[in-house]
């Protein structure tokens, strides 16, 4: 039996779909007729939705008159694009040459360890999304970690722990 709240949920889902379609159309319009636009559109879409949801890809395919296969081929090729929603915090560990030489692997290990501990103590899995990135351009401060857009340099594993703690406090 359908409950009222299920109706409401369906309603808001439909609203979301409607809004999503509108946004996708707008983005596609904005780039319409401009040379070399697909990747730029995907960037715009990811900026908008945080990732590229399946429904959005579908809508985009329709809007641009290209196949889903094409869109998926592209999205899965480029590491920048995501098919799943990002966590609420993103931790990027630089694995560029300089950072690697200066112990980035250890930082990464410590991060993983700390996150496991945090998950054990009730932090939602996926709340912190850890990824390795290549040279973030601050080799002078190696090893470096970017936490939600803020760069932290010359880190040791202990410092990583502190940063995580502060984030979690917030």
């Amino acid at each position: 039996m359908k409950t009222k709240s299920a109706d409401a949920e369906l309603g808001s889902l439909l609203d979301w779909v409607e809004g999503m379609r509108k946004r996708v159309r707008e983005i596609a319009r904005e780039w319409e007729g401009r040379e070399g636009n697909l990747i730029m559109i995907l960037h715009a879409i990811q900026n908008e939705f945080g990732y590229v949801p399946r429904g959005v890809a579908n809508e985009l395919a329709r809007e641009m008159g290209i196949s889903m296969a094409r869109i998926y081929e592209v999205i899965t090729f480029y590491h920048y694009f995501r098919l799943t929603p990002p966590g609420s915090h993103t931790v990027q560990v630089c694995m560029g040459t300089a950072c690697y030489l200066k112990g980035a692997e250890k930082l990464h290990g410590e991060l993983e360890r700390q996150l496991k501990l945090m998950e054990a103590s009730g932090v939602r899995k996926g709340e912190f999304h850890v990824e390795n990135v290549r040279c973030i351009g601050c080799c002078g401060m190696a090893p470096a970690v970017v936490m939600d857009g803020d760069t932290h340099g010359r880190l040791c594993p202990d410092a990583v722990k502190d940063i995580l703690k502060r984030k979690r406090g917030k």
Binding site: R54, A57, S67, M68, A69, R70, I71, Y72, E73, T76, F77
Partner: peptide
């Protein structure tokens, strides 16, 4: 499938050692 048949049922997804042929959109 893509160019001769214009069906686009098959695609190449991901890259590197992860690269694989799969129906469009997995």
């Amino acid at each position: 499938c893509q160019e001769v048949q214009n069906v686009w049922a098959l695609s190449i997804l991901h890259r590197g050692i992860q690269m694989r042929m799969a129906p469009a959109g997995d």
